[in-house]
Design a protein around this nucleic acid. Structure first.
Ligand SMILES: [Mn+2]
Ligand SMILES: [Mn+2]
Ligand SMILES: [Zn+2]
Ligand SMILES: [Zn+2]
Lengths: 157, 157
DNA sequence: TTTGATAATGAAAACCATTTTCATTAAGGA
DNA sequence: TCCTTAATGAAAATGGTTTTCATTATCAAA
């Protein structure tokens, strides 16, 4: 008998419980916000959004939850060099489309791109294999970002 | 008539003066350390090294000088995700060999690699061109890093 | 449903790399 | 040598993130 906002219905319920984590209001709220957001949110961005609906959830919990989520692989922790970490939902096995980032060094705009990803990924796989062998390195991850100046920022001379 | 450590002899003398910067003991000392170091030093690493020989040079000056040097393109400011910036000498036009990094997520060891660089660079150029056109982005720089576990860290199970 | 062990939390304080402030020093052109 | 002002050191400030600790809430067990 669902009444209003019924807790514990999300697909991530199992993931949490399976790893021994308890299901709390803060965790659900944060995951909910991240899953619905298109942009790359900072801890404080998330805190502000949450605070309007759940004033009881503190910034500390946001940080702690983001740690848990990224250790579970449900969220990516990103660094675009603006002095604060940013987080992005790592969509489930369905909508998962690998992408890299284009970063404007003037206004900090971030563009997700998937173009060329196939070629990139192929080269990356090769490279990872080669490097892994030569340096006996077990490669688990890669980071690719392009920096430059976006269209708007080019305009303002 | 050179007597001991004659100031103002480095090849960077001109670069500094040309940009209106004064030639100071601190700047020379920092540049000297960076040019001789193989590793990726933090501001404090540099400060400690300098302090043994020139106790008068403070940490603040190290930070300020590193800013100048990286704005001049003489030094690269790097971020390997360990919470502090690291700096690496951008060798002059001669010994300049472009390289990327392999980062051990357990012990923070960094490996410079140049293997596959040619293929990578070719793909990067293509990608940069394509992305630049599609997103009207003026790409000036790229960041490529592989993360994983190094040989030693794999050993300790 | 009640209970109890303990995971999770919020508020405040601590952390810590980096930056800012400001009075003092020194580089280098005149 | 003189003088303008860039450069500097010490100390304080900054700001994102983490730690501390007393309190609360989750949920397995009874
Ligand atoms: Mn993204
Ligand atoms: Mn390097
Ligand atoms: Zn921009
Ligand atoms: Zn290692």
């Amino acid at each position: 008998m669902p009444r209003g906002e019924c807790r514990g219905q999300g697909w991530w319920h199992g993931k949490f419980r399976g790893c021994g984590y308890r299901l709390t209001l803060g965790r659900e709220a944060i995951l909910d916000i991240l899953s619905k957001s298109e942009s790359h949110l900072s801890a404080e961005d998330i805190y502000v959004k949450i605070h309007t609906r759940y004033p009881s959830v503190g910034l500390t919990t946001v940080y702690r939850t983001l740690d848990v989520l990224s250790s579970l692989g449900m969220v990516y922790k990103l660094d675009f060099g603006d002095g604060r970490s940013r987080y992005e939902f790592a969509e489930g096995p369905k909508g998962a489309h690998h992408h890299h980032h284009l970063v404007c060094t003037q206004c900090n705009k971030i563009i997700d791109y998937t173009d060329f990803i196939d070629d990139e990924v192929e080269l990356l796989n090769q490279t990872e294999k080669g490097l892994g062998q030569k340096y006996k390195f077990k490669i688990t991850n890669h980071l690719i970002q392009f920096y430059g100046v976006c269209e708007e920022c080019s305009g303002k001379k």
